[in-house]
Design a protein around this nucleic acid. Structure first.
Length: 875
RNA sequence: GGGCGCUUAGCUCAGUUGGUUUAGAGCACCUCGUUUACACCGAGGGGGUCGGGGGUUCGAAUCCCUCAGCGCCCACCA
């Protein structure tokens, strides 16, 4: 069969992906086989594939494809996330461009727009995953707002409410004034920023005394309801209990004492604004202070802000500085670096705000999540270092604010009636009405009920993902959930360990009393060569699809996996894809080479071929053992590296060269058949990494009839192998290497055959036929140096080889070479001797170690002896 | 402020409970090469006092202390 000289990745990828799909090779249904399940971390429905997704999904595909070949019922569940805040922000922005304000339209109208948007841009990312070769069971594709998924979320809320774990609380929360919603603590990033510390003057009622207060937020003085000092502070002893006057407002506020105040910081005197700072809020509760809210939902000052009403907080900060200064109420302003909380989604400065929100009690339901990861390792983390991060978070967990003031998401199933303080949790209005009227004397009508406007935090749906994709919330006993749950592996980034991983573990035990997965593989973050995070703003993120088109999916996959150990950041550079492409090219050409070898049916197998094939079989099994072990430990880049070296170095550079027929000759049938089997095995271990190329080659191998796809073939079994044969071949390689060096030194062409002899030894060096062929040696046998006039010798392990010299011989250079060798060995001998001279070593070290050292001495001594002999013969 | 982790060849990293290695890999680099699979290649080669210092030990890249540098996570000092 003709093999094209160049591998065409574009056509091949298209061909095989549609073949796999048509034959439903990724489809999984419960059966008698052992399940291997991964649920995808659902990407944002309107998102686009970026390098992080590529890495993450390549790893998942590798795990899934290998499991499938291991004979498991592999099931990779794909899907997308509605990503409430991110998607809503995009829709709002888009509507704005069209002149529509969200506040001017009804909730239903907005949702209609949002669905339009989702249908227009949604799901594209899943098509991109297909280009990467991902072997998901696409029939199972889920979206977090699908009807069944929606119902599961609502039902979970109901169940938790029933247990008394969900409650409504008036609390200080993180307010994102841009998105106009609360965000959870996890969605706030604290970033160090340059700002100013303002020293303000407060007067005390009926007194000449003025107090100085340091604050970073002078605009919040309108919300001040106390000043606070430390009771131990001698400076302020006399003023505790007096009234201070808020600058500009002229309001009187009490001066209180609390040990919370740091004597050292600022002036030791603190202004207390309970409505806009969590610490102040706590102080307010403790000291029964008034709470004055000065902002609206946009963080614009309300009428408590007097003449600043209607102005933005940062604008007011600038203006009030000027006013205070002009009134001589600003003492000084210092540069100050402090942490500012910013919303992860909008980057707006988060405003602490008091409001009524829904919370989930966390302290009890987290207990199994702690136990099963940290104590009994029912769930394993790779790398394990993330356990400590996980532990700290769980042990210091606060109640989870699960309500969001958004429309795009699962609307909170709470229905208010009567005075709006009464509410009932129900799946829908109808059910709510029935429930209410059953327990109330007053009979309500549907119009008397209003559903909570808020939606649930996106993570409140994703934390159910491994259960809800198998419908295990609504039907806890269905065949699917019973078969597929718990899943095996989860592959995700450490940045969502709290958002998602920990919460899935919590919900797993809460709703099914069982872990959601057994192993968590944390990928690193994809960065550029300069270690910068890849981002749109920096423009340092390559176009994922373009990379696939240019290099081929397999090459990109290999490139990504070449340097990404679990948990380690991946410094991505396009040259990695080039390396991947070089590898695909290498394998392709191996196919072309083997394909070109004609078979001689009559010829019996030459010894050299048998030696080569036996060695490679041993070597393959030796590597496979390592590969399997590394897979078990999720050391996937190590797996790739050993496969890469096995195929490139051992298979292509050695075995194929050994078997390559001489000019004009044919290969014997046995060798070719055995070679093809070995080639196939190589393809199998490479398949999880390079699914397209390997599938293509598998069907093009000569003398085979591979009608069944490689994708569903069996992972090779480890056969018994001879480690000695593997070790011995290393000596063979060295001998050949030395001869090559010799040729190079002497400028002897490969075409000129040489004779090679070796000194008698109790063992003869193996693989003589291989050395003869690969190094172009005419005669290779035992002999003694006396038989020749001059020789060039080299020593490998315990063998000394020599090549008789005919003319032109640089004696000095030869002596130099030997002396160098001698020096090394003498140094080595000395270090070993010193070790053995040390009585304590001999006394304390294990006998096995001592014996090894002793053997080293014997070996090295005999080596030194023969080198010395060679030198003296030359001199 | 608290916690975790890192520092091994030019780059990215291995080094599996301290001892079969006076330190390994891939890439990069240098030299040579038109041997009929592949120059997206082949053959060969150079390159590290394992961040500094101290300690434990017969023996340390590996364990302990300390210093320096870097990274990440958490956190309510105005």
């Amino acid at each position: 069969m003709q093999i094209p000289p160049k591998y065409n990745h574009i056509d091949t990828e298209k061909k095989w992906y549609s073949f796999w799909m048509k034959n439903k090779l990724f489809k999984s249904v419960p059966n008698e086989k052992e399940p291997f399940t991964i649920v995808i971390p659902p990407p944002n429905v309107t998102g686009l594939l970026h390098m992080g997704h590529m890495l993450n999904n390549t790893i998942q595909d590798i795990l899934v494809r290998r499991a499938r070949m291991m004979g498991k019922n592999a099931c990779w569940v794909p899907g997308t996330d509605h990503a409430s805040i991110a998607t809503e922000a995009k829709v709002v922005e888009n509507l704005k461009k069209r002149g529509i304000n969200k506040s001017d339209i009804t909730r239903d109208e907005f949702l209609e727009h949002a669905w339009d948007w989702t249908e227009k841009y949604g799901g594209g990312i899943l098509e991109q995953l297909k280009k990467l070769g991902c072997s998901c069971d696409w029939d199972r594709t889920k979206f977090t707002l699908d009807d069944d998924m929606y119902e599961s979320v609502i039902q979970a809320f109901e169940a938790l409410h029933e247990k008394g774990l969900v409650y409504r609380g008036y609390r200080m929360i993180n307010w994102d004034p841009e998105a106009k919603t609360t965000v959870s603590d996890e969605e706030v990033n604290h970033i160090e920023e340059d700002s100013s510390l303002y020293y303000l003057k407060y007067f005390i009622e009926n007194s000449e005394v003025e107090l100085q207060i340091a604050t970073t937020r002078p605009e919040t003085i309108f919300g001040d309801t106390a000043l606070c000092v430390n009771p131990k502070d001698e400076r302020y002893k006399d003023i505790i209990g007096k009234q201070a006057i808020v600058p500009i407002c002229g309001r009187k506020i009490p001066i209180i004492a609390d040990s919370y105040v740091d004597l050292e910081f600022g002036t030791g005197c603190l202004k207390v604004t309970p409505a806009h700072d969590i610490n102040d809020y706590n102080l307010g509760i403790k000291h029964n202070l008034e709470t004055i809210d000065i902002f609206d939902e946009n963080a614009i000052l309300n009428n408590n802000g007097l003449h600043y009403e209607g102005k933005d907080r940062f604008q007011v900060r600038k203006e009030i500085e000027i006013e205070l200064d002009s009134k001589n109420l600003l003492v000084k302003k210092e540069n100050y670096i402090h942490n500012v909380g910013r919303s992860e989604r909008t980057n707006a400065v988060v405003e602490p705000r008091l409001s009524k929100q829904w919370f989930l009690k966390m302290d009890d339901i987290t207990k199994p999540a702690i136990k099963n990861v940290l104590e009994n390792e029912n769930i394993k983390f790779f790398p394990g270092k993330f356990k400590s991060t996980y532990k700290y978070w769980l042990e210091n967990i606060k109640d989870w604010n699960i309500s969001r003031q958004l429309s795009w998401g699962h609307q909170i199933p709470v229905f208010y009636y009567g005075n709006n303080e009464n509410y009932i949790v129900a799946k829908n209005k109808k059910e709510a009405l029935t429930k209410i009227n059953n327990k109330s004397k007053v009979q309500y009508k549907e119009d008397d009920l209003s559903q909570d406007d808020d939606v649930l935090d996106t993570w409140f749906s994703s934390w159910l993902w491994p259960i809800s994709v198998f419908d295990g919330i609504r039907n806890p006993n269905n065949d699917e959930i019973n078969y597929y749950y718990p899943t095996q592996d989860l592959v995700t980034g450490p940045d969502i360990i709290f958002f998602w991983v920990a919460r899935m573990i919590i919900s797993g035990y809460e709703f099914r009393d069982e872990k959601p997965f057994s192993n968590v593989y944390f990928t690193g973050i994809v960065r550029d060569k300069l270690r910068r995070k890849m981002s749109k703003q920096l423009g340092n993120s390559p176009d994922a699809i373009k990379l696939i088109e240019e290099y081929g999916a397999d090459s990109v996959r290999v490139g990504l996996m070449l340097s990404s150990a679990a948990g380690n950041d991946l410094l991505f550079d396009e040259s990695l894809c080039q390396q991947g492409k070089n590898f695909t090219n290498k394998i392709w050409n191996a196919l072309r080479l083997v394909n070109g070898w004609e078979v001689d049916e009559e010829k019996s197998q030459p010894v050299v071929n048998k030696l080569g094939i036996d060695w490679y079989s041993n070597k393959f099994n030796n590597s496979l053992e390592l590969i399997n072990k590394n897979f078990e430990n999720y050391r996937i880049s190590d797996v790739l590296m050993s496969s890469y070296r096995l195929v490139w170095d051992d298979f292509c550079s050695w075995l194929l060269e050994i078997l390559k027929p001489n000019f004009g000759e044919k290969i014997d049938k046995k060798s070719k058949t055995e070679l093809i089997i070995l080639f196939e095995k190589n393809l199998k271990i490479l398949h999880p990494f390079m699914p397209f190329l390997t599938e293509e080659i598998y069907h093009n191998l000569p003398n085979t009839n591979n009608s069944s796809p490689l994708t569903i073939s069996n992972w090779p079994e480890i056969e018994d192998y001879d480690q000695k044969s593997v070790n011995e071949f290393e000596i063979t390689k060295e001998v050949i290497s030395q001869i090559r060096n010799y040729r190079k030194e002497k400028n002897i062409s490969f075409k000129t055959s040489l004779d090679l002899y070796y000194l008698p030894d109790k063992n003869s060096p193996g693989n003589i036929e291989i050395i003869k062929k690969i190094a172009s040696i005419n005669k290779l046998e035992e002999s003694s140096k006396e038989n020749f006039e001059m020789v060039n010798s080299f020593i490998i392990k315990n063998y000394e080889f020599f090549i008789p010299l005919e003319g032109g011989f640089d004696k000095d250079a030869e002596i130099m070479k030997l002396k160098k060798e001698l020096d090394y060995n003498e140094g080595f001998l000395k270090s070993v001797e010193n070790k053995l001279k040390n009585e304590n070593f001999v006394k304390n070290a294990p006998a096995a170690i001592v014996n090894i050292e002793k053997q080293k001495i014997l070996d090295t001594r005999s080596k030194i002896k023969s080198i010395q002999k060679s030198i003296s013969e030359l001199s």
